[in-house]
């Protein structure tokens, strides 16, 4: 049996993490894997940090990733990416967004947004891919497609057919938003 692979999505409520993890899970199911994903809803989503666990393989038991066994850390916000850095296993991969969102203690001036986070990530994972998701989303035509830009970047580290990603997006994204999202996905792939 192949080892189960673990992807951890990390960011802030409202960044479109749930949609990204839905498309990812759908694509993995279409590719024939057993898939489980887990996240929490409710109070945690009110501007708090959000994680979504996606696991796939021949047979997946726990829907949550065991501590320290993340294969791909998929970060939507820099601080939240750094927060979960210790969850990476050896040979873990990082795909992250350059975006910084101030947590409350920073907003109210009690402390500064931590400096050098990108450097810290690169120090631990030298081949980490940290991209300007927001810039590319704006280039695609809609700042809200940042989650799909990042998904495009993630897709280059995974061995799934392009057709499967397209099929998963077509299923999960409303038709009127499909074109701009596909453009965002393509920009993420070439980032």
């Amino acid at each position: 049996m192949n080892r189960v692979k673990n992807i951890l999505l990390a960011g802030v409520g409202g960044q479109g993490i749930l949609l990204a993890s839905e498309i990812l899970s759908e694509a993995l199911m279409l590719a024939g894997f057993d898939v489980k994903k887990a996240e929490v809803h409710g109070m945690a989503q009110r501007g708090g940090n959000v994680v979504s666990h996606v696991r796939y393989g021949d047979k997946v038991f726990s829907p949550t990733i065991p501590d320290g066994e993340v294969d791909i850390l998929f970060g939507f916000e820099l601080l939240e990416t750094a927060r979960n850095l210790d969850q990476l296993g050896t040979e873990g991969v990082v795909i992250a967004n350059t975006l910084k969102l101030a947590p409350p203690s920073v907003s109210i001036g009690k402390e500064a947004y931590p400096a050098g986070l990108a450097e810290k990530i690169l120090e631990k994972v030298p081949n980490a891919k940290i991209i300007d998701g927001m810039g590319l989303a704006q280039q695609a035509g809609d700042a809200r497609t940042v989650n799909i830009v990042l998904l495009g970047a993630l897709s280059t580290t995974m061995d799934l057919d392009e057709a499967i990603w397209q099929q998963a997006m077509e299923k999960m994204i409303p038709e009127r938003l499909l074109e701009v999202n596909k453009a965002a996905f393509a920009l993420g792939q070439s980032a």
Partner: peptide
């Protein structure tokens, strides 16, 4: 032994009113 769940020296991000 349990591994630390998150990096403790980073500012927390608790939920907040919108």
């Amino acid at each position: 032994a349990l591994k630390p769940e998150t990096q403790e020296d980073l500012p927390p991000r608790p939920p907040n009113m919108c």
